[in-house]
């Protein structure tokens, strides 16, 4: 598989603060990556370093095969960081034309990309007249101008209203479907869960996990069960080889699996023991639950 970005032992200290510590991971072509972490966990610093605006204290990284300098490689990358930065006195179209010149790409894609983000009819309005949502969409259009190998988005929905968030997510999904590699930094878990196939989880500048979202937790998932004879069911589950911990909250019984067990198998098994269920759900931990488990394990 083609590698897009390789990071080796990247470290950034701001004085005594270790913003990023010995971070290593790689990004392969065609996947959608999320960098997850609470505020201040080093997401933006990491992106800043690979985007040539923050100097690493230690470690190194290289784009693609590492043959080109970082700034040349960045011409094949599309990135938006924190908030959109453009020249306020220029129109959308003029700003994008400038980006084209910097990226050394022809200017004939400007209208097409403005159309993708729904700003075509505002192309001749000055940037300073745009709302935050429009500015963010213009930033995405600008990042797409070079048909990038990878699109990097840092908190793309930060500060937007629900409608704006929805618009941005739809755009991201559309881009992901076209096969563009995406790296999305966010502290919003459902955002990452909805679009990403892979995650890198950071906490206080240290990598906790990197890999596929669905392989993040080795657990087999859990059952949520209800029935009339609660105690009988709890006893049965406690003696069951496939179940580990069993929790009871009110009349809801949650049994965590230690080995695979299908929902229909459990149902017929319980039925043969004369336990009739009123509620049966098999679930995997959500990203949020897994994330909290991962970050809490270190506390």
């Amino acid at each position: 598989m083609e590698t897009i970005l390789t990071i080796n032992n990247l470290t950034k200290h701001y004085g005594a603060v270790k913003a990023v510590n010995d971070l290593s991971f790689t990004i392969e072509k065609g996947n959608v990556y999320g960098i997850l972490g609470p505020n201040g966990s080093g997401k933006s610093t990491t992106l800043g370093m690979v985007l040539n605006v923050v100097n690493p204290t230690r470690g190194n990284f290289h784009w693609f095969d590492g043959k080109n300098s970082t700034h040349d490689a960045l011409k094949k990358v599309g990135a938006i960081i924190e908030r959109p930065n453009f020249y306020p006195y220029m129109t959308a179209k003029q700003n994008l034309a400038l980006v084209c010149k910097i990226k050394d790409v022809p200017t004939d894609r400007i209208e097409e990309k403005l159309d993708v983000v729904g700003l075509l009819e505002r192309k001749d309005s000055k940037f300073s007249t745009f709302s935050l949502g429009m500015k963010q969409r213009l930033a995405i259009a600008s990042a797409l101008l070079n048909n990038p190998e990878i699109l990097i988005l840092d908190e793309p929905t930060n500060g937007l209203d629900p409608q704006g968030i929805h618009q941005i997510r739809e755009i991201i999904k559309k881009i992901a479907q076209d096969g563009t590699t995406i790296l999305l930094a966010s502290h919003l878990l459902d955002e990452v869960e909805k679009v990403c196939s892979h995650v890198v989880i950071l906490r206080k500048g240290v990598k906790l996990y990197s890999g596929r979202v669905d392989a993040m937790n080795a657990s087999q998932g859990f059952f949520e069960l209800k029935c009339e004879q609660t105690q009988l069911l709890v006893d049965y589950l406690n003696n069951h080889n496939d179940f580990g911990e069993v929790k009871v909250e009110g009349d809801l019984i949650t049994g965590y699996l230690v080995s695979p067990l299908a929902a229909h198998a459990l149902n017929s098994e319980l039925h043969s023991k004369d336990i009739a269920l009123t509620h049966l759900v098999k679930r995997k931990e959500s990203l949020e639950e897994q994330f909290l488990q991962l970050t809490n394990n270190l506390n």
């Binding site: 985007l51 040539n52 605006v53 300098s69 970082t70 700034h71 040349d72 490689a73 960045l74 011409k75 990358v77 990135a79 960081i81 930065n85 453009f86 980006v99 910097i102 990226k103 050394d104 600008s142």
Partner: peptide
């Protein structure tokens, strides 16, 4: 910052 990210070197 944006110029540098877009691929202009310092």
């Amino acid at each position: 910052k944006q110029n540098l990210i877009d691929g202009l070197s310092k």
